[in-house]
Lab assay of single mutants.
Amino acid sequence: MDALKSAGRALIRSPSLAKQSWGGGGRHRKLPENWTDTRETLLEGMLFSLKYLGMTLVEQPKGEELSAAAIKRIVATAKASGKKLQKVTLKVSPRGIILTDNLTNQLIENVSIYRISYCTADKMHDKVFAYIAQSQHNQSLECHAFLCTKRKMAQAVTLTVAQAFKVAFEFWQVSKEEKEKRDKASQEGGDVLGARQDCTPPLKSLVATGNLLDLEETAKAPLSTVSANTTNMDEVPRPQALSGSSVVWELDDGLDEAFSRLAQSRTNPQVLDTGLTAQDMHYAQCLSPVDWDKPDSSGTEQDDLFSF
């Protein structure tokens, strides 16, 4: 819950932080000083300027060897085509990944977070970031790969997607708890209302004896509580940590079903599988986004697919 609360507080303090972009060759504004600060901008989305290598189908939802083989196929196909790589912007948030063309600003792909089953910074092609997700059109699994400016960037994108998945799962947990509370309150309110109706004398007997209905007592009954809980029953509950912020979080049926399955089948359902080692994760978390744009010590960066 700490990640969720800190993310909400950060967004309320400075929503404009989320509009910064990394990996864009110096076009961005001043960047936060450390990885923790940038992680807090996830709610509205972190932007990464990358190059799209392509996509291939895979048979399993996750796995280092599986993704490595898929990336190898994608890279080989991209090299064989001889075409310049498409420059894209990857927007990562707890909602998922939005992929747009840098030149036309046209939407290429919009992947809900619950469809993503794996992401990684490839070991062999260490400047490549990739994720595996279920197609929104059918049940097939797709591996999408992107060329980053350097290994640090690939690791940073991988960690960002993993963190977005974690925050999304926490949102789901909060929403589920809130819905259970509202359902319980609604049920209790309905029981109270039913009890009051059972003990209320029939209207005919009131008229016969000349008694008047006590409207004041009726007004004191917990009807307002019942209506408050039943009027918006169809509205999706939102985490309290975000009250007053500009973010509107809505959970669709697909996300609810997917996270429910994860909660039942996995020990740590909030953790998205990645190909990063503990050492890689520690190294990337210690980086400032400013470091992502620094040239690798191995030599001059080449803006070309064939540089790796």
Rank of each mutant, 00 (worst) to 15 (best):
A130C: 13
R151N: 07
L57R: 15
L213C: 08
E180A: 14
A164E: 15
C148I: 00
L251M: 11
N110D: 07
V271S: 09
E216P: 11
M124P: 00
T300V: 04
S224I: 12
E235H: 02
P289T: 09
W249P: 10
I108L: 07
T149C: 10
F306L: 04
A121L: 04
L42W: 07
E59N: 06
Q86N: 13
E188L: 05
I98N: 04
G299L: 05
G63L: 02
D214Q: 09
S117W: 02
A133G: 13
D101H: 12
A241D: 15
V207K: 11
K123G: 14
S298T: 05
K184S: 14
T36L: 14
L50N: 04
L272M: 13
V58M: 15
I71D: 00
R27H: 06
N110W: 14
E64V: 10
L276P: 07
K79R: 05
E250N: 05
D303R: 05
M233I: 09
D234P: 03
D304C: 05
S260E: 12
C148L: 01
Y52W: 05
S227C: 11
D293N: 13
F171V: 15
S175Q: 05
Q106T: 15
G194Q: 03
V248L: 09
I108H: 04
E33M: 12
E33H: 14
L85F: 01
M46G: 04
S297G: 12
I113P: 03
T56D: 01
R73F: 09
L47A: 13
N105S: 14
Q60Y: 14
A168F: 04
A18H: 08
K152R: 13
P295R: 08
R196E: 10
D126P: 00
H137M: 13
Y114K: 01
H282L: 14
Y118S: 02
E170P: 03
C286P: 11
L103Q: 03
Y118N: 03
T218Q: 07
V226T: 06
L17G: 09
K30N: 14
L57N: 14
L206T: 14
F146L: 04
L17A: 15
R238G: 07
A121S: 09
N229I: 05
S260F: 03
L287V: 14
D273Q: 08
A168D: 03
S67K: 01
E142K: 03
D198W: 03
I12Q: 13
S93L: 15
E257C: 06
E217G: 06
W172D: 03
T200W: 05
Q136C: 15
K181E: 13
S135Q: 06
L159P: 00
E59M: 05
W22L: 07
D101C: 14
Y52H: 12
Q197P: 13
P61R: 08
E64M: 14
Y118M: 03
G190T: 05
H125Y: 00
S140L: 13
T267V: 04
A78V: 10
I132M: 10
Q187H: 04
R27E: 10
G25T: 03
A130D: 01
K84T: 14
C148G: 13
T300W: 05
K84R: 06
K5N: 07
A156K: 07
T218F: 06
E177A: 11
Q60F: 09
L85Y: 01
S224N: 12
H28I: 13
K51H: 01
R261W: 08
G189W: 02
L141D: 03
L11I: 09
C148A: 04
Q264T: 04
L276A: 11
E109C: 07
L107N: 01
M124T: 13
C148F: 01
T200F: 02
P61F: 06
Q270W: 02
V157T: 15
Q264Y: 03
L203G: 06
R196L: 08
E217T: 14
P202S: 10
A130I: 05
A18Q: 08
G26S: 15
L66E: 01
V128S: 00
V290Q: 07
A284K: 10
D191C: 02
Q285G: 07
S93H: 06
R13Q: 15
P289S: 03
N34D: 05
V236Q: 14
E188D: 08
K72F: 08
G26H: 05
L4A: 06
V247I: 11
A7T: 15
L103I: 14
Q20C: 14
S245T: 09
D252Y: 03
G54T: 00
F306D: 01
A195D: 04
Q136I: 04
D293E: 06
D126Q: 00
L242S: 10
A78E: 01
D304V: 09
F48L: 01
E65A: 15
E142Q: 11
P239Y: 04
R196A: 09
C199W: 08
V174H: 03
T230Y: 07
